[in-house]
Design a protein around this nucleic acid. Structure first.
Lengths: 223, 223
DNA sequence: TAGATTGTTAATCGATTAACAATC
DNA sequence: TAGATTGTTAATCGATTAACAATC
């Protein structure tokens, strides 16, 4: 990704930033005022040079011998991630996962994500309230999104409704979609999609465990 | 990662498998019997060669001109991911997210993950039932895990309890941890950790949106 | 047979790491 | 001044893509 300041940052670099932020916020709580790249790198498990590049992409400038000022660093990373200005979001799917997302205070308090409304097709859910947000019919998503200039959509519907929800979001002018469904969404090129399908993550875990068990069994029987 | 059959697959390759699986299961439902790498690659957005390598790591063998047999492919990928044999798992943290995880029938039905018990420190939660599973005190996690030979632990506790939960899991003989907290866990080298912190994913989304908005604004004002 | 598709080896590309001058 | 740490350029590494022979 090309940044404002002419630097670039990769998707993987971007994923390191929230981890770096979490770490230096802890340091700040402990009363630390500066930090160098080495302990950060150690914490997140990468090379210090990598951290320097990531921070540089956020516009951070360090000072030889002392490192980076923590408070400034926190502000710069949060600015870079867009967590310092609140964005309103619409949620499609008020089921299990959707309800949990509505309950995450951290999103609003620390990441600037304000989920203002939830949408669902289930008549039993429409009209009810979840964590203070009323559930509206899916059919209203597009028009409301356009009227309220909502730019972020969250897809937490069953797999076979995911593309429909995405279509409604795009029609309503939504620019970025956080997709919890396993489907690859067909959206215009300029629409940002971040996939957060939990089964992908679970697959990595179970596959690694499985391989480890198979390997240890093999070495037990062959060794 | 080195596989049983002598091939290797990268973490990124591993992440493609659940997506491939989801796609070919849809094809199967539509009555298709074979599939070639090109449509799969198109769907998940990568090169067909990549797909061939991923499938090869699972032990799949295709046939020139016809491609791969879908039913066999589904079985091989599920075997490779460990989704065909059920694993029991313990959940630490019966809050918002933890409860949602307990409610995902898909984990048990399609991914072989059976969350058998939930653990929490909150007296108000201990003894209650969530989706049919009783919430137990955290202090019992280690012993029970060892007694029941549970190999998978899920961390859905607040950030400052995450390391403690991980320690209890390791002490109980748990081999793989699915970590929803933002913390980097300090565990023995042989313990498998898969991080699924939602704020990392959210950070990618908001950072990209932010850059897009900044860039489009710049081009509007300078163009 | 002709041609589509596999499976694999070689080339390319991008991300990570190493090296090192600049500087506080 | 000496030395720790930054910032950047060069080298390395690994993943992706291209090329192509094998084969159904």
């Amino acid at each position: 990704m090309n940044t404002e300041n002419g630097k670039t940052i990769s998707d993987r670099g971007l994923r390191r930033l929230p981890k770096i932020l979490s770490y230096i916020k802890d340091l700040s709580r402990y009363g630390e005022e500066t930090v160098s790249c080495t302990p950060i790198a150690q914490y997140i498990g990468c090379d210090p040079t990598q951290v320097r590049k990531d921070l540089s992409a956020c516009g951070a400038v360090g000072r030889p011998r002392t490192g980076f000022e923590i408070d400034e660093l926190i502000r710069l990373i949060e600015d870079f991630l867009g967590w310092n200005n609140t964005s309103e979001a619409f949620l499609a799917g008020a089921g299990n996962l959707g309800s949990a997302l509505l309950g995450f205070e951290k999103f609003r308090q620390q990441q600037g994500l304000n989920i203002v409304s939830a949408f669902d097709n289930d008549q039993a859910k429409i009209g009810t309230e979840i964590y203070g947000r009323e559930v509206l019919p899916m059919s209203k998503l597009s028009n409301l999104a356009r009227r309220m200039h909502v730019l972020i959509g969250i897809i937490a519907v069953p797999a076979d409704s995911a593309q429909g929800a995405a279509d409604a979001m795009v029609a309503g002018g939504i620019r970025a979609i956080w997709n919890f469904s396993p489907k690859t969404l067909d959206v215009p090129e300029e629409t940002i999609v971040e996939n957060a399908d939990l089964s992908v993550s679970l697959g990595v875990l179970t596959a690694k465990l499985q391989q480890e068990l198979l390997t240890s069994h093999t070495s037990r029987t062959t060794g």
